[in-house]
Design a protein around this nucleic acid. Structure first.
Length: 653
RNA sequence: GUGCCCGUAGCUCAGCCGGAUAGAGCAGCUGCCUUCUAAGCAGCCGGUCGGAGGUUCGAGUCCUCCCGGGCACGCCA
């Protein structure tokens, strides 16, 4: 288990009883657990499974194991309680150890220097993580938050374990939907098409919202009218052919496809599509920066970042994720067509009902469709091409897709198809699925968000509401801070966004989330603001100490002065942190970190609020310093944990 | 119909590789601000862990079946 258990186990392994039973430190450590009640001991070793192996009764084994136990090190006392070997640790020495360990890894004033809980278990390995992946020409709605923040947090957690993590935003920027968008734009805004003949930004100052409305309006008409629907398909075909012609592929045809008329029509569509994408990215950028993420468009990296990418790729991938639109695999490298040719040649893909498919789950079950019966590539094909590109370009060791659970089948098919094509590394690909965000409908039922029905809540609105709510509370509770407008806004932003983020990450990702304004904006209890508040209060306490006794020298804080049960429990919680992060990393589950922080913050708050005697800064300087030393360690672990969740720390609130 | 996810306190959720008496937050009730931020703390109330079998020394946890809810199941992505 954790380093505390490891150290205790190492000590126990030298005892005669354990030696005789053939139990080494590893086995011991793996079987150490916390007893249900503190007075039973700090750690307990359960003998059941070893007793069974040895053919003796558990209580007998427990009694034998403690024969010749040498206490006096970390273990102060040991006793056999029925089938358990209960261990009472020497608290002073453990506290001293844990504090030293935290301090060793958390030197420095800046949160990014606090590395307690980090490990190098992933050193030299690369993880590609597919996150966020919105469709262009649609605004970011609340449900996009899940993939984005779960993915972002996993990225940070994996990085803390030594991995290189490439965050990839697989933009939905290709498919027949864009034919509909183009057709809609031409239909309702005739001058745009005219402008596109000469202007590279034909959409003027149209917003994402307007693009989305145009699409929705056209889509509605297309559902009622076959001809209109076909017009949408045609526009996409024109776009796709233009792209193919641009790539100068022989099979695109020499004569008719490249004739002036088609070329011009294609160029118009291309320009509309490209401008729609630029407009979308500009808006996404605003949203992502609120959340603390930065994306660069791949592979068109601007000069400044190109240099960083070349000189310090590690720093580039740490500080930025990348956009790689689906269109990239079609337009730039022809990866889709190559993949399809490969699948056909190897006979993995077969023709069925006019489409080219791979029967990943056997005949009769839903196949993976590579090419649709109208000749257009499907998103499956583009996802496969994307996987191959990522594998080749980043030499990844692992890849995961942070995508809603409703796409489970798609990813099952994807991984199986890759294996059938001989790509065994697909075994290291996974789907980090998460539950749906549900919204209450007018009829009271809960359902997926729908832009069409107007039940979708825009991410920006949610963040704005949360920030405004925090701003109000600051005005009410901290007038001094409220008076400083720029500081107030900075804090309101960090705490408001943090509230939304923490609310999303605190529970297991597979749970469906019933979106509830009251719950998101409730800043009591297990909430982001509560976490931020504990952090801020620890800074206040530190400041108080400074005012009273001057700059604290933590090394002089005497662990022997920390004898309270609450303090011991906090130390145990601190000691467990590295394990918690490792587990969250292995399971792609940020909530494991979030939950642990809730516990740590709660223990801390109970500790120093309990009585007047537990105030940190009191009359006894030595006691105050010892306690402050613990506060300092807690603050750094809490700060590190919140950072791993993608939250920003504040110093006042 | 088939597959996957979920079912633990009134509500939202934790619960480790099966381990000793199942835990938080919210809501409700009762206290606590001359002191380091009350966005807080303490206490009370609240449980047949959906149901039935099974495996095991031991099951909220593993297996089977059933019930209830959600999602997916060929040309949207």
């Amino acid at each position: 288990m954790g380093f505390l258990e490891d150290r205790v186990a190492a000590e126990m392994a030298t005892w005669g009883g354990f030696k005789a039973a053939g139990l080494d430190a590893k086995k011991i450590s793996e079987n150490l657990a916390r007893p249900p009640k503190p007075d039973m001991g700090d750690l307990a070793f359960a003998t059941f499974r070893f007793a069974k192996e040895a053919g003796v009764k558990p209580p007998e084994l427990a009694a034998k194991l403690i024969e010749g136990a040498e206490t006096g090190g970390m273990v102060a006392e040991v006793d056999a309680a029925g089938p358990y070997v209960n261990l009472h640790l020497d608290h002073e020495s453990v506290i001293s150890d844990v504090l030293a360990e935290v301090e060793k890894h958390s030197a420095g004033a800046l949160p990014q220097d606090w590395r307690f809980g980090d490990s190098d278990s992933g050193h030299g390995k690369t993880l590609c993580i597919d996150l966020s992946s919105p469709n262009i020409a649609k605004p970011l709605a609340v449900h996009h938050l899940r993939s984005t923040m779960i993915g972002y947090s996993i990225k940070k957690i994996r990085e803390s374990q030594g991995w290189r993590v490439v965050g990839i935003n697989h933009l939905g920027d290709w498919g027949t939907g864009f034919g509909k968008l183009i057709a809609g734009i031409k239909k309702y805004f005739p001058d745009v098409a005219e402008r596109a003949k000469s202007d590279e930004k034909p959409l003027g100052d149209m917003t994402v919202q307007e693009l989305n409305e145009t699409y929705a309006r056209f889509n509605k008409e297309a559902k009622e009218n076959e001809d209109i629907a076909l017009a949408g398909k045609d526009e996409f075909a024109v776009l796709e052919r233009y792209i193919e012609a641009l790539m100068d592929r022989p099979e695109a045809g020499e004569g008719d496809l490249l004739d002036a008329m088609a070329r011009e029509g294609g160029q118009v569509n291309f320009r509309i599509w490209q401008h729609a994408r630029d407009i979308s990215l500009a808006e996404f950028e605003r949203m992502y920066s609120h959340l603390g993420l930065s994306f660069r468009l791949w592979p068109v990296i601007e000069e400044a970042h190109k240099k960083l990418l070349k000189d310090e790729p590690a720093a580039f991938y740490r500080d930025h994720c990348i956009y790689v639109g689906e269109s990239y695999y079609v337009t730039a490298e022809d990866l889709c067509r190559r993949l399809i040719n490969d699948a056909v040649e190897s006979r993995v893909a077969v023709e069925d009902e006019g489409a080219l498919v791979i029967f990943t789950h056997g005949k009769g079950k839903a196949p993976l469709i590579l090419v649709k019966n109208d000749g257009a590539t499907s998103y499956h094909a583009r996802d496969m091409a994307a996987a191959l590109y990522r594998k080749r370009h980043w030499e990844l060791d692992e890849m995961t897709y942070v995508v809603g659970g409703e796409q489970k089948l798609h990813f099952d098919q994807l991984f199986k198809a890759l294996k059938e094509l001989g790509h065994d590394w697909a075994d290291h690909c996974s789907h980090t699925d998460f539950g749906l965000m549900l919204f209450q409908q007018p009829d009271g039922k809960w359902a997926k968000s729908s832009t069409r029905k107007g039940t979708a809540i825009m991410l920006e609105d949610l963040l704005d509401e949360a920030i405004a709510a925090v701003r109000d509370i600051i005005a009410e509770k901290n007038p001094e801070l409220a008076a400083d407008a720029s500081m107030r806004e900075h804090v309101a932003h960090a705490v408001g966004v943090g509230a939304v983020v923490f609310n999303d990450l605190k529970n297991g990702r597979r749970n469906n989330v019933k979106f509830d304004w009251d719950a998101v904006l409730d800043f009591q209890g297990e909430s982001g603001p509560y976490m931020q508040m504990q952090y801020v209060r620890m800074l206040s306490v530190t400041e108080k100490f400074r005012e009273t006794y001057g700059e604290p020298v933590f090394e002089n804080g005497d662990p022997d002065r920390l004898g309270l049960d609450e303090e011991w429990r906090i130390v145990q919680s601190l000691a467990a942190f590295p394990d918690v992060v490792a587990k969250a990393s292995a399971e792609f589950e940020p909530s494991i970190v979030a939950r642990h922080l809730v516990e740590l913050a709660g223990l801390t708050s109970s500790w120093w609020t309990a009585t007047k005697d537990t105030r940190i800064v009191g009359d006894d300087e030595g006691l105050s310093l010892a306690r402050l030393r613990l506060v300092n360690a807690i603050r750094k672990v809490l700060g590190r944990g919140l950072t791993l969740l993608g939250m920003e720390l504040v110093e006042r609130m």
